[in-house]
């Protein structure tokens, strides 16, 4: 006979700490920025990998999927919320959204973003992107030892 043993939750030691960040971006605003500032806007915010990932070629002309760019911007801001910089914030290009062939995305950090992540004890970052019509959003979850994520 199987017996279920219930343990009061206050007796369980948490083994995993988490932080969550979310951000919402207007696709139209990203489109306006791209029209107004062009390459300067792209180069300041996105890595070459991200730019290539969002490039679309139609009838020989290169354009950009602005909804995908907006989702990536949201992901970068969500990561910043998770990193909780006290003062200087990491440059946008130090937080990279890497899209895998199957369609899911991961986050790659460098520079100050990586330093803040290590300092916080973050072991893993998970990201989910979405866009629909005029809005794009991203959620980022960071996991690590509970004592390092307080």
């Amino acid at each position: 006979m199987k017996t279920n043993v219930l343990v009061p939750t206050d007796r369980l030691e948490p083994t995993v700490g988490r932080r969550v960040g979310v951000d919402l971006v207007s696709v139209k605003e990203v489109e306006e920025s791209l029209r107004r500032f062009g390459r300067r806007y792209l180069a300041r915010i996105y890595t070459e990998t991200e730019i290539r990932s969002c490039q679309r070629v139609r009838k020989g002309a290169v354009g950009y999927a602005v909804d995908s760019l907006a989702a990536r911007f949201a992901a970068k801001e969500a990561v910043v919320k998770v990193l909780r910089p006290d003062g200087v914030r990491p440059a946008w290009r130090t937080i990279e959204v890497v899209r895998h062939e199957a369609g899911w995305c991961t986050i790659r950090l460098s520079g100050l973003a990586e330093e803040l992540s290590l300092r916080a004890g973050i072991r893993e970052l998970s990201v989910s992107l979405t866009h629909d019509g005029e809005m794009a959003a991203a959620v980022v979850v960071a996991t690590g030892p509970s004592e390092l994520l307080t």
């Binding site: 971006v25 207007s26 605003e29 306006e32 806007y41 200087v88 946008w92």
Partner: peptide, 27 residues
Amino acid sequence: TSHSSVNLMLALEERFDFEFPDQLLRR
């Protein structure tokens, strides 16, 4: 918003012909 602040930053850089250094990337 954070995205509007990017536009603000780029427009200021254009007008005053400089680039905000990384250490000034703070709220």
